[in-house]
């Protein structure tokens, strides 16, 4: 990955209006958005087909929890940022240590977290 090529961020968010804001913020910060995807099945399929450097994941997709995708991405060592209204205690044990941004979030904070994840990777 060179500096001239924008980082690709995989976005999963079922609320269109929220996705719209994430998209706007990331694009404004110079990232390339893959998505947003709104259901578990389409996001799993897309995550296997697309290449990306980091993922932001909404945990609850219309009642479906996104955990299988999180497990898969962790296994692939893709940095993951969880976007959720849930408290950390509501999460399964293994996800409690993951970077997490609580809704509603500030666009600047989102960009800052993404940047640090990409840098760490």
């Amino acid at each position: 990955m060179t500096a001239t090529q924008p980082y690709r961020v995989f976005v999963v968010e079922d609320e269109f209006l929220v996705a719209l804001q994430i998209e706007d913020d990331l694009i404004a910060a110079g990232y390339l958005v893959v998505g947003p995807f709104t259901s578990l099945s389409t996001s799993i399929a897309a995550s296997r087909a697309e290449s990306f450097d980091v993922a932001t994941l909404d945990l609850n997709l219309r009642g479906e929890l996104v955990y299988p995708l999180v497990d898969e991405l962790l296994e692939r060592q893709v940095p993951v940022l969880l976007l959720t209204g849930y408290a950390s205690s509501d999460l399964p044990e293994r996800f409690r240590a993951l970077p997490r941004l609580s809704k509603p979030f500030d666009g600047a904070e989102l960009v800052r977290r993404i940047r640090s994840l990409v840098a760490a990777a």
Binding site: E15, L17, V18, Q21, N60, T84, G85, Y86, S102, K103, P104, F105
Partner: peptide
């Protein structure tokens, strides 16, 4: 979750 979603 709902409240925070709605706020988002």
């Amino acid at each position: 979750h709902r409240v925070k979603n709605t706020l988002a």
